[in-house]
Design a protein around this nucleic acid. Structure first.
Lengths: 248, 248
DNA sequence: TTTCATTGCTTCATTGTGAAACAATATTAA
DNA sequence: TTAATATTGTTTCACAATGAAGCAATGAAA
């Protein structure tokens, strides 16, 4: 039993103290008023803002930890959550804690797992945590200064969203149940960061056969009332299995 | 300085012992003889095989740790390496260490970061580690039993490869410098797990204008000698910036 | 009642795709 | 030496998808 012997011998080294720990950062996206927004916290006594997050416990699945944190910040359960990348630079938190005592627990080496969440803006109530002074939605086109590497993490989340637009139910989770075609197109344009031709967008998205046109329109706007649609959840899921073909 | 006070107070909790640690698992792909292969280890006294991997040190960037492990197994530096997903289930190693003493260091909770590597098969020399009896290339169509969640991790790596085929220099890193069109097509077919029409493949891949046709052919085969190509590294890089358009 | 911006939908030239066939060629078999 | 064969290189053609533009419909505001 050579393997057993080797492992048990090595176990006496106290490697435990030489290993990093694990935290989570969440990029929570919402769509409101034709703008894509992120939920951010401002820490007490600080100018900089932060992504919601926290520490993973030893007895907790990482996904469960992410759901826990998400629920604490939004007061909503079971949001759409997607791990997108892990951030493992040694110096990622150095700047922020520079003038704290060296035995500060938070100064340990942490590796952070990045998640993005997609939420229905109208259903979420932002909730502060105990070290924050504010918790607010911010337009992604006008973000404040972020602490540590959180701006980098946010950028990676947005790029991931762009790449996954044809593979994940992104529109479905960001839009309210009923929405108009111009709203859907606007969401696509923001995520892709480019203008799309209106007629071609209509033609293409309708051909996917994932939308159900309702017998209602959104009155009250300044001009012609746009038709309301909703996703046909089942057809959408089926279509995503192979990915919506081709680029936008 | 409310934030400072809160953080320092909390630091007294010894959360350190309640946090998981971080390891790495690498799926190393190589392409040889028109087959896609993975580099696996068989542990001493064990039937099951394992992905190469190791533990991340406290003072080490995660990417650097992955390169370190990769070099140990392949005797080659600077391979193409890509983080693809982090595996955070609490019970991921439980089965394997079930009949080891509970204070075995390896029985701690580990969260594993998955990387895949793409290597030029001919340049790599598989190297065993100290707890392994064998280190070998295995055909992905005929994998042996893998320990813990390594089969799951492998599957995720393969799916990632498939999704990234149009965004990352996958052919470039798996093939030798000179290769034939049928070899390239075969690689695509294995990764995508579907047959491609030969004529259409030629037309499409050539239109991308990322290949350079050489004035040589591969003699010695049973039939017509296929032309040799190589990637035009610069054009390939440029083309990948926007992704090669459309699906295969 | 008219104006106007926006929405819904169609058209048309161009490009890309799937499927198939033909032509070329290096080896092997006769 | 010649013919057969499997594979490779290239082209064709019908059809589908795309980009760009325009026209018609509509609801609010002037």
């Amino acid at each position: 039993m050579e393997l057993r012997k080797t492992l048990i011998e090595r176990s006496e080294n106290m490697w435990r103290d030489f290993l990093p720990h694990v935290s989570i950062d969440c990029v929570i996206f919402g769509f409101d008023n034709n703008a894509l927004k992120v939920l951010l916290l401002r820490l007490k006594d600080q100018q900089q803002w932060a992504l919601p997050g926290g520490y993973v416990r030893k007895d907790e699945n990482v996904d469960d930890a992410a759901y826990r944190m998400l629920k604490e910040r939004t007061a909503v359960d079971n949001l759409y959550l997607q791990q997108f990348r892990t951030f493992g630079q040694t110096q990622r938190s150095e700047g922020f804690f520079a003038d704290y005592p060296d035995d500060l627990w938070h100064k340990q080496r942490f590796i952070s797992i990045g998640y993005y969440a997609l939420v229905n803006y109208a259903e979420v109530t932002p909730v502060k945590d105990s070290v924050s002074a504010e918790c607010e939605w911010k337009d992604i086109g006008d973000l404040p200064d972020l602490m540590m590497d959180h701006r980098f993490i946010f950028n990676k989340a947005l790029v991931t969203l762009r790449k996954q637009l044809n593979y994940k139910p992104i529109g479905y989770n960001l839009l309210p149940e009923k929405f108009t075609m111009p709203e859907l197109q606007k969401l696509y344009e923001i995520i892709l960061d480019k203008k799309l031709n209106r007629g071609n967008f209509y033609r293409k998205i309708l051909r996917y056969d994932i939308l159900e046109k309702l017998n209602e329109s959104r009155k009250g706007g300044a001009h012609k009332a746009p038709d309301l649609y909703r996703f046909d959840a089942e057809k959408y899921r089926d279509a995503l299995k192979n990915g919506l073909q081709s680029e936008w």
